[in-house]
């Protein structure tokens, strides 16, 4: 257990610059976009007396609000978030391959540590989850700061208060990234974790069987994808003529997801223990 935590610490430590870099880019891009758009709009109002860029359907009061600001800057806000997602997506692979490739053959050491090899797997998985939730927490912590900055940039008589939930709902990216509904949150991140587990298993297949392993990896990923998606589409969720009740389909889906996750973990541990090659 102790060594597991040390390994997690090591994995986080190795990624720290990239993680802090992503956080810095997020903060800088979002704050800059927010201030730029807000000030432009304030200047516009002061010059012409009307808010030109406020969508009257969504914001009938024609006053500036934080939700409006988020709505108007959502493309800019999405940019660093997509960058973070892409980086983490790539790092799901790199977290393994960096130990094999180049001059850094750290895998020789990792595999010969006097600890169960599943701790290597668990530490890398934990690290990825920590990065994901670390970045999301950072975004959540950034929002109140951004609201303060917005309030400082826009005079009180030009703005109206708006709750955070409105701000989150105003952005397509936030709606998906920070689901307000608990079930939605569990579904999104549950699928995410299953995907990471399946990709880990595929990577370890490749690392164990090399050239043939690439094929095994793709076949495994395809099988997982089919297994997870089949109940949703074939059994028909929310279809009037479906044979099963939605609750039954959801139960089947849940079971399939658990099986895929368990199979990926089992396969990965087995490959690490018996088949892995440096």
């Amino acid at each position: 257990m102790n060594r597991y935590f040390k390994l997690v610490h090591l994995e986080v430590y190795r990624f720290r610059y990239i993680l802090f870099g992503l956080m810095a880019v997020t903060a800088i891009v979002q704050i800059a976009a927010l201030l730029w758009v807000s000030r432009n709009e304030v200047a516009q109002i002061q010059a012409e007396g009307v808010a030109a860029n406020v969508n009257r359907v969504l914001f009938p009061d024609e006053k500036l609000s934080f939700a409006w600001a988020i709505f108007s800057t959502q493309r800019w806000f999405a940019l660093p978030i997509l960058l973070s997602i892409a980086t983490l997506g790539l790092y799901v692979f790199l977290i393994w391959y960096r130990d094999w490739l180049g001059r850094d053959t750290f895998i020789y050491r990792l595999l010969t540590l006097p600890t169960a090899r599943r701790n290597i797997f668990l530490s890398k998985l934990t690290a990825i989850l920590l990065f994901v939730f670390g970045l999301i927490s950072f975004q959540l912590a950034l929002l109140p700061i951004e609201r303060i900055l917005f309030n400082m940039a826009v005079a009180p008589d030009l703005r109206e208060p708006s709750p955070f939930t409105d701000a989150i709902l105003a952005s397509q990216v936030f709606k998906r990234l920070l689901p307000l509904d608990r079930t939605q949150f569990l579904v999104s991140y549950g699928f995410g974790i299953i995907a990471v587990l399946a990709v880990f298993a595929a990577i370890l297949l490749e690392r164990s069987y090399r050239r043939t392993g690439i094929l095994y990896g793709f076949v495994y990923l395809a099988a997982c994808a089919v297994a997870v998606l089949y109940p949703l589409y074939a059994l028909g969720l929310n279809q009037a003529d479906a044979y099963l009740y939605p609750e039954e389909v959801i139960a089947i889906e849940l079971a399939v997801c658990l099986v895929v996750a368990a199979a990926s973990i089992w396969l990965s541990w087995r490959l690490l223990a018996k088949k892995i090659t440096v």
């Binding site: 190795r14 001059r103 850094d104 053959t105 750290f106 020789y108 050491r109 006097p114 600890t115």
Partner: peptide, 20 residues
Amino acid sequence: GKETYEKVSYIPDRLTVPPY
């Protein structure tokens, strides 16, 4: 197994700690 890694040390012909 993990116990034998305390007993046997291995010196491969390449680096085994991260370069940073």
